[in-house]
Design a binder for these strands. Sequence first.
RNA 1: GCCCACGUAGCUCAGGCGGUAGAGCAUUUCCUUGGUAAGGAAAAGGUCCCCGGUUCGAAUCCGGGCGUGGGCUCCA
Length: 632
Amino acid sequence: MSSSASPGKGTPALSTRIPMPANGPLSTSTREGQSTRVHILDDPMPDYGEHEATDDPLQVLRHSTAHLLAAAVVELHPEAKYGIGPAVQDGFYYDFDFGGKSISEADLPAIESRMRRLAQADIPFVHEVLPRKQAIEEFAKRDQIYKVELIHDKVEGDEVSVYRTGEFLDLCRGPHVRSTKDLKAFKLMRVAGAYWRGDEKKPQLTRIYGTAWQTQRELDDYLKFLEEAEKRDHKKLGKDLKLFAVDDRVGPGLPLWLPDGATIRRELERFIVDEELSRGYLHVRTPDVARLDLFRQSGHAQLYSEYMYPPMKFEDGEELELRPVNCPHHIVIYQTELRSYRDLPLRIAEIGNNWRYERSGTLAGMNRVRAFALNDAHIFCTPDQLMDEVKGAIDLALYFSKVLGIDEFSYQLSTRDDVKDKWLGTEEQWEDAQAALAEALESMGQTYKRGVGDAAFYGPKIDFQVRDAHRREFTNSTVQVDFQLPQRFDLEYVAEDGTRKRPVMVHRGAAGAMERLFSYLIERYAGAFPTWLHPTQVVVASTKDEFNDYAQEVGARLRASRVRVQVDTRSERLNRKIRDARLKKVPFIAVVGEKEAPAGHVNVNDRTDKQVEMPLEAFVSMISAEIAERRR
RNA sequence: GCCCACGUAGCUCAGGCGGUAGAGCAUUUCCUUGGUAAGGAAAAGGUCCCCGGUUCGAAUCCGGGCGUGGGCUCCA
């Protein structure tokens, strides 16, 4: 599901629980949209639509630091042309055109020390309003072509708001801090390429990222946070804990699930499938390929080809395509019988592989890959049933989130692009679908933000956004309403009155892609998975070799109750065995030795360092209950 | 795909302004039998990412690939 044919701009939403330095009121308020009863979350990181005005002192500070950066850069590189420089989450950036000169991170210290010098110079930020013509002249005089372009394209009326910091002049609404002296705690972080105004066809500028805070203390905290995030990074833990591997010979974006990672995935899939079955979903299995014609009929071949693998063509004329989505397969299943209204809603589910040729630069660990297994389902229902089905899908996603520990996320309602050839259907259908999604969310008391242009080509969607250890936002689950595919495939059901009617489809991925869910969970738990998920639930450690037999018995007993257990009979000291189990973040260590063996006991040590000696059977029932309840 | 950085043993990294490499951990073997976060010793382990170029000589310099990371763009 969820193929999108439209460009959009990711904007991070509110944060709730990630431990972070205080960072001001990052907007949890809602305000009324212009037309409907739609709640829109204030966007904490206004895309410089153009130096959006804000009163948040931290954002003002960061924005001012961006100016300081540009001022320093222009002093050091007089030929540099500056683009835009907004405050963003945790900091700021500024984009420069160095005219072919390449700037690397090695250049940052020099720029940063120039910034410090300017900061100490106590230069005031001076606001001026210039007549349009004069503003253009001022920037043209400095050869600042990007600013001139912005005035032409973005500034309406004759008044142009600019800020001066010494020699440096910038097009900007402000507000700013009073003086460069107010900028004390900042640090340049990295350089990156960024296309002018986000357009790949326009020149690529050099973006310099920095972070800025009110106090040195907060800056230090932030840097510490980054270090901690590094330790939770799923790519690092995936390697350390032997959960997954990547290898050139297999190919980029094609990770290998190692035994322990695969164990976790199996548990997740069991949990997901069982829950869905109990909620009336029918689980199916369908092939990863289909004739290309199937995707022509769905529209993917036309509107989504950018992400599709080239078709496999055979001598006899056969053309097979690796599927980017599995909705067409599920549609074909729908059509294996003539369906009655009594069959609806028909919920067809599968955890199946989808294949998308993501651009090489976008791949990242398990988070963005080229083949992924989606917890996907397609619900075929009557228009009357639509609302309940959407709510049901949201409710399921919430349930999964609760059990899995996804305790912070935000909703985005992704709506249609303005560009007509990027979507199918009529405006009316889209309005209906968008209204249905909005209403479902509102009736469930959920707030959300809007992502204009982020919809799939066949319908709008609700995305559940989660954040990784670095607070980068990702879509995990989605719910999408689709009037288009039923039409393109001429889906129908026999209504109560005997006539043929067209069903509506809901596409939903309640737990998202297994790969992305996995990367999220690794970071969420920093590898210390809840017992039901952990690849090794118990390590049985004997204190010396003579108790190895008893340790094996304990292991066998636990295994008989389907507990995943490893018996550590190495001729190592207890300390070593404990340490190794701890490093693997194993939930329980059962120590057995001369005290426990004769009594039939185990000495249980959990991740909180508690130690309790208990009869083996008591431990078996304790851990079995914990696993069965999927306790966190 | 584009920009920047990086790519040395299974892992984490040293080293090397040109003379074919080193540590710790992991692995194997031996010794050790030790009660809650590393017992000791020995061995084995490398086409220094790949391909070209310069050079008497390249892991080191140059060029081109590939891969990884962070961005852009996109997205499950």
